[in-house]
Amino acid sequence: MSGPVVVGVDGSRSNLAVVEVAAQAAERLGVDLELTQVVGWPAGAGRFGVPSWEMDGTGGYASARGVLDQAERQAHRTAPHVRISREVLVGEPENVLEGESRTASLTVVGADGAQGYGTSRKGSLAGRLSARMSGPLLVVRGRPNPVGPVLLAVHGTSTLRGAAEFAFAEASARGVDLVAVQLRNISAARPYGGSARAVTADEEDAALTGALAELHARYPDVTLRCRRPRGRSRRALVEASADSQLLVVGARGRFGFVGLPLDPVCQTALREADCPVALVHC
């Protein structure tokens, strides 16, 4: 995609690190960076997505401009050649960012993002947003190893292709190895609303070999290593993330519309990984 990297801006000190990661991503992808500040609904406000500057006289949201000024300075220091745009929009953060993400190459948020001015929802923005995205979502968390590999969680055939393609592209752009961690005993082929069928180890191995071989041919500069950990697979994934600069995890479908949770691997990655997590909906 050629759309911008969209980053949620919330004014917190930790959010400047999120903006920095988003600026680096925009630079790698060769696209624009869009800084999006979401503010809450004032009484009598219009429909979703109304630019909040129209309400500065009564809504008290002029401070959002100062937040964006600070974020823009941080982004420019990090990636001085990236073109930056900025928006202040009204609504719930997950609604606004999900809408903005539809034309984005990547959406970036912090693991414990603030709510935005005057919003009513509680809890992690990353957690709420991850359940409804259709495009790739990067959640900035942990302490990434700047020289570590990109880590790919292989946990089922239905999510393998999209996640692997994203992981290869990131490893190539970053100039690092790609480590595919094949998780055991947690995969199933189950279209929602249908019956479950266990995916055999042979089927997983064949899918992994086929998908990775084709992508490896497209990215010959990437050194690929595969691991099949013993014991608790999800715990092994978390431990491997401590030495990685990015963890890529595939997720099935758009869960927010049917009220279904993310699968256990995605949930573990978002809660416990020690590096940023890219969630790729497939």
Rank of each mutant, 00 (worst) to 15 (best):
residue 268 T to V: 12
residue 150 V to Q: 05
residue 92 E to Q: 09
residue 178 L to Q: 02
residue 31 V to E: 00
residue 48 F to P: 00
residue 187 S to L: 06
residue 170 E to Q: 10
residue 36 T to I: 14
residue 96 V to W: 04
residue 109 V to R: 08
residue 13 R to K: 13
residue 53 W to I: 05
residue 12 S to V: 06
residue 195 S to Y: 15
residue 160 L to Y: 00
residue 44 G to R: 06
residue 272 E to N: 09
residue 35 L to S: 07
residue 264 P to L: 08
residue 17 A to W: 13
residue 253 G to C: 07
residue 90 V to R: 06
residue 162 G to H: 09
residue 236 A to N: 07
residue 129 L to T: 03
residue 58 T to K: 03
residue 63 S to M: 12
residue 276 P to D: 02
residue 15 N to S: 06
residue 179 V to N: 12
residue 51 P to A: 04
residue 183 L to S: 02
residue 83 R to D: 05
residue 113 G to K: 02
residue 202 D to N: 15
residue 249 V to T: 01
residue 178 L to M: 09
residue 3 G to C: 03
residue 165 E to Q: 14
residue 59 G to P: 15
residue 229 P to H: 01
residue 57 G to D: 15
residue 203 E to P: 10
residue 51 P to C: 03
residue 25 A to C: 11
residue 241 S to K: 06
residue 280 V to K: 00
residue 47 R to A: 12
residue 236 A to P: 04
residue 222 V to K: 06
residue 150 V to R: 04
residue 95 N to P: 06
residue 255 F to D: 15
residue 179 V to Y: 10
residue 55 M to Q: 08
residue 74 Q to K: 09
residue 198 A to F: 15
residue 235 R to S: 10
residue 52 S to H: 08
residue 272 E to G: 07
residue 32 D to Q: 13
residue 197 R to Q: 09
residue 26 A to E: 02
residue 264 P to F: 05
residue 53 W to T: 13
residue 209 T to E: 13
residue 240 A to W: 08
residue 248 V to K: 00
residue 180 A to Y: 12
residue 148 G to I: 06
residue 241 S to Q: 01
residue 16 L to K: 00
residue 173 A to C: 08
residue 27 E to H: 08
residue 115 Q to N: 12
residue 19 V to G: 07
residue 277 V to H: 02
residue 251 A to E: 10
residue 231 G to Q: 11
residue 163 A to W: 01
residue 56 D to P: 05
residue 265 V to Y: 15
residue 191 P to Y: 00
residue 38 V to M: 09
residue 226 C to K: 10
residue 48 F to K: 04
residue 252 R to E: 09
residue 54 E to V: 06
residue 84 I to N: 07
residue 61 Y to M: 02
residue 263 D to I: 00
residue 160 L to R: 04
residue 204 E to G: 06
residue 51 P to D: 05
residue 217 A to Y: 10
residue 181 V to D: 01
residue 91 G to R: 05
residue 132 R to H: 07
residue 19 V to T: 08
residue 40 G to K: 05
residue 180 A to C: 13
residue 59 G to R: 12
residue 34 E to A: 06
residue 37 Q to C: 11
residue 20 E to I: 07
residue 53 W to Y: 11
residue 65 R to K: 08
residue 52 S to L: 04
residue 50 V to M: 09
residue 210 G to P: 11
residue 241 S to I: 09
residue 245 Q to Y: 02
residue 52 S to P: 05
residue 92 E to L: 07
residue 37 Q to V: 13
residue 179 V to R: 15
residue 251 A to T: 13
residue 129 L to C: 08
residue 281 H to E: 00
residue 76 H to L: 10
residue 218 R to C: 10
residue 110 G to V: 03
residue 73 R to S: 10
